[in-house]
Amino acid sequence: MLSATGSPTVYPEEKAEDLLGPLQEKLCACIQCGTCTASCRNAHLMDFTPRRLWRLVLMGQTEEIFHSKTFALCSACYYCTLRCPRGLPLTDAMNLLKQLGAKKDVAGYRPNARFYGSFLDSVRRHGRINEVEFMRRYFILMKNPAIPIKFTPLGIRLLRKKKISMLPNKRKPEYPLDQFFQRVEKLENQQ
């Protein structure tokens, strides 16, 4: 849900506990030691460090959390999870924020959500990723010609090496997973 300016609005129909409840449960033993921040390769680029983000989650500060760039910058290296002295599943917590960011169509997370969404669309159709189809879909969703232009040099090298092909490969086996995805969605909505 978005305002006209593209920034996330408060979610009046949902209380912070409902939205963040499962996450607060995962993080309630956090002692704010900052080992996660010190272990994160991208912390210096984040507006809220991981430690501060966990505090915001526990305080139910939905606005600040979904305005922040923090979870969009997590590259899932698992250093924070490995080192957390409380043994908290911090990378999983980042994943939960990514899932919420995608569901709520949060502006700052939109490129990530579109990238992963395009990936899963291709998997849903073929069972295995079709790299060209997936990237083409991502470029279309992003509506920014500068993005495919940046990828062109690498794309040309991959084409020359015959690692990717612009033509559909008829010989490749297909394992459509549309019904599989539908079953997952149905089961998740039942919860």
Partner: peptide
Amino acid sequence: GWTCCGASAAEAQSELLS
């Protein structure tokens, strides 16, 4: 007939799918 593992995409979309 193996299929995609979900890469880093599934875990960012749905816990059950991942």
